[in-house]
C-alpha cells in the first residue's frame, strides 16, 4: 500500500505562539544589544596595539558568527521541510534568508572598514573575508532562487535544496580558501587571530553576541509572522483575527 500525504499544518497556532514570544525576545534583544554595545564602544579599554579601531569587533564578530549559523539554520529548516513536509519550515526559510544575508553583508562591510586602518586597504584577499564573501554569494543565490518562482511554495522548496547543497559545500569552500590563502599570501597580518582577550573586552563581546542573536531571532519571528499572514491571507482564521482591520481596509 502506498500513501501520498498532503498534510495540513496549523499556521495559526505558530502565528499566535510567535506573537506571544516576540515582545519578550525583542525587549531582551534591545537590552542586551544596548548593554553590550555601550560597554564595548564606550567603557571597554582601548587595545594597546590597535587603539580604538579594534572596537568594531563588537559588531563584526557577532554578525560574522551569526551569518554562518543562520545559513546552517536555513539548511536545517530546509531539511525539516523536506523530510516532514512541513510548510512552516519552508516559510522559516523565507524568513531566515534575508536576515542572514544582511548580517553577512554587515560583517563583510565592518571587516573591510577594519581592514583600512589595519592593512591600509579596504579589501584584502584574506581567507576569512573571502569565505564571508562567498557566503554572501550563497545567500544571494538562495534569495534569488526563492524570488524567481511565482509560487512561493515551489520557491521555498527549490531554495531549500540549494541551501542544503550549499551547507555541504561550506566546509569545503572554507578549507579551499584557507589553503589558497596560505599558498598565495604566506603570512599576512591577521587581525583576527589574536592572543586571548582580556576579560574587560571579552564580556562586552559575549553580551553583544547574545544581543545580535536575540535581534536576529526577533527579526525572524516577525518576518515569519508576516510570511504566515501573506500565505494564509484568505483563510478563515485570518479573517477572524483581523476581521475589523480587513473590513476597514476594504472600505477605504
Amino acid at each position: 500500500m502506498w500513501r501520498w500525504l498532503h498534510p495540513y499544518a496549523k499556521p495559526e497556532v505558530v502565528y499566535r505562539l510567535l506573537g506571544r514570544w516576540l515582545p519578550w525576545v525583542a525587549a531582551a534583544a534591545a537590552l542586551t544589544l544596548g548593554a553590550g554595545l555601550v560597554w564595548g564602544l564606550v567603557f571597554a579599554p582601548a587595545d594597546y596595539q590597535q587603539g580604538d579601531s579594534y572596537r568594531i569587533i563588537f559588531v563584526h564578530v557577532p554578525t560574522a558568527m551569526l551569518s554562518m549559523s543562520l545559513y546552517v539554520a536555513l539548511a536545517i529548516s530546509a531539511l525539516v521541510g523536506r523530510v516532514w513536509q512541513l510548510k512552516m519550515a519552508d516559510w522559516a526559510l523565507a524568513a531566515i534568508a534575508p536576515v542572514g544575508a544582511t548580517l553577512t553583508f554587515i560583517s563583510l562591510a565592518t571587516g573591510a572598514i577594519w581592514g583600512k586602518p589595519m592593512w591600509g586597504t579596504w579589501w584584502e584577499w584574506d581567507a576569512r573575508l573571502t569565505s564571508q564573501l562567498i557566503l554572501l554569494f550563497l545567500y544571494i543565490g538562495v534569495l534569488a532562487l526563492y524570488h524567481a518562482f511565482s509560487d512561493n511554495r515551489n520557491g521555498a522548496k527549490a531554495a531549500g535544496i540549494l541551501a542544503m547543497v550549499g551547507v555541504i559545500n561550506i566546509p569545503i569552500i572554507r578549507y579551499s580558501v584557507e589553503w589558497w590563502n596560505t599558498l598565495h599570501q604566506g603570512a599576512t597580518l591577521t587581525v583576527f587571530e589574536r592572543p586571548p582577550m582580556a576579560n574587560s573586552m571579552l564580556f562586552p563581546l559575549l553580551i553583544s553576541i547574545l544581543g545580535f542573536g536575540l535581534l536576529a531571532a526577533a527579526l525572524i519571528f516577525h518576518r515569519m509572522r508576516n510570511e504566515i499572514l501573506r500565505q494564509e491571507l484568505r483563510r478563515p482564521w485570518v479573517k477572524n483575527e483581523f476581521g475589523k482591520e480587513l473590513n476597514e481596509a476594504e472600505r477605504t
Binding site: 554569494f137 534569488a144 547543497v165 559545500n169 569545503i172 569552500i173 579551499s176
Partner: peptide, 8 residues
C-alpha cells in the same frame, strides 16, 4: 547559483 559552488 552555481559559480560560488565551483570555487573549491
Amino acid at each position: 547559483l552555481l559559480l560560488p559552488l565551483f570555487i573549491p
